[in-house]
Design a protein around this nucleic acid. Sequence first.
DNA 1: ATAAAATACTTTGTATTGCAAGGTACTGAA
DNA 2: TTCAGTACCTTGCAATACAAAGTATTTTAT
Lengths: 109, 109
Amino acid sequence: MKSDNVQSQMRKGVLEYCTFLILSKRPAYATDIIQQLQDARLIVVEGTLYPLLTRLKNGGLLEYEWIESTQGPPRKYYALTGEGREFLKELESAWGEINDTINHLKINN
Amino acid sequence: MKSDNVQSQMRKGVLEYCTFLILSKRPAYATDIIQQLQDARLIVVEGTLYPLLTRLKNGGLLEYEWIESTQGPPRKYYALTGEGREFLKELESAWGEINDTINHLKINN
DNA sequence: ATAAAATACTTTGTATTGCAAGGTACTGAA
DNA sequence: TTCAGTACCTTGCAATACAAAGTATTTTAT
């Protein structure tokens, strides 16, 4: 309940949205995604992202392809499926509603 | 992972922020808070809010006062403590950062 | 060749927390 | 005095963020 985990708490659920935004741009593999999230100031660790990617893949929202790397082991490049793109629209909408809610509560103060 | 709980997932952590926004306006009791959240389009149930209020109180961020009602049992009116007001500032800041992150990821698409 | 380092993916255990469902207690009216 | 209404609380479950440790592959250094 201390300030250490304010962002941690708040970003629950948001991480999924951010991951979709990144993958809607182009396919990426885990380390790639983590780097892009860091560039956007959202710290995420492997232990969080890998299970998330697996869940989304099992849910049919993501798919992946093994791509060989010139600098190490092969990588799983994830991309949105058609269903995933539909889902992203829902996430956009949900995000908009949350923002409306917060703005509504702010204004009425 | 289906659309049913998109908002549910995304609002995790946001609920706390919304509760603070409501209580920063004026003291309120649980049913009051739930009503205001509903007015702002955020559905919350008792089983979620009561433990949240208790956690925040135990964390020293909220305090309450028993106030008698003319229409039923007495009510616990919660209000922000000084520490709670500081915490709200942190929540505002964290929310701003999350927004920046999302906008950054949107723009770079 | 072989060991060490780097890279990438995975798994396990823990803590948090949203929620459904059910429970307790007080008040006032039929 | 029973019942409906209101308010607060608790229990059990599921989801998930994270730390930490583990497995596997590739590259680099010796």
